[in-house]
């Protein structure tokens, strides 16, 4: 009987410790390894309340009292292969980078939508929400600033 008790306690501990560790591993390591090496993964979440794109994680515990930081300018290096993971914390948004002819891509609430591009030339790449999502829709924009490595012209 003693071994059953020990096995039972071990099973509970495995659940209590193993599950968050597994999730943490997926979040920090597993997810990144889905992409080719040297890929720059950027997470952007659209928030209607306040009208902003943020790199902060909007999850259950901070959703109601969130004060997310506006992702105004995101620095990239020329030559970066970029994957943007798009999320919406509330309503249906839409993402576009007009200069690269990317989008508009629908970003439904709770879904993860990916957009990839190569930052081949230095300059500013404005990204924005492409559909009227909320009263503060017009504020939903930001810039990728691609820094030059000295080899090419700007956009």
């Amino acid at each position: 009987m003693k071994w059953k008790e020990t096995a039972g306690v071990l099973a509970v501990l495995i659940v209590l410790l193993g599950l968050p560790m597994m999730l943490k591993y997926w979040r920090t390591v597993g997810m990144i390894h889905r992409y080719p090496p040297n890929t720059k993964v950027i997470r952007l979440t659209a928030v209607a309340d306040g009208g902003l794109w943020t790199q902060d994680e909007i999850v259950g515990y901070n959703y109601w009292w969130r004060k997310p930081t506006r992702a105004g300018e995101i620095a990239l290096n020329q030559g970066d292969h970029v994957v943007v993971q798009l999320h919406s914390a509330d309503v249906l948004h839409s993402f576009a980078i007009p200069l690269l002819h990317i989008g508009p891509v629908e970003v439904p609430a709770g879904h993860t939508v990916e957009v990839a591009f190569d930052a081949n030339r230095p300059g500013d790449l404005t990204f924005l929400c492409w559909q009227v999502c909320s009263p503060e829709h017009s504020k939903l924009q930001g810039d990728f600033i691609v820094k030059s490595n000295g080899s090419e012209d700007s956009w």
Partner: peptide
């Protein structure tokens, strides 16, 4: 069920705030 409810609790705090995706 302990495993599932623990996952539910983690999802409630750290998962998406969108109900139909959590």
């Amino acid at each position: 069920n302990l495993f599932l409810f623990y996952l539910f609790l983690i999802a409630g705090f750290f998962g998406t705030p969108i109900g139909n995706r959590n």
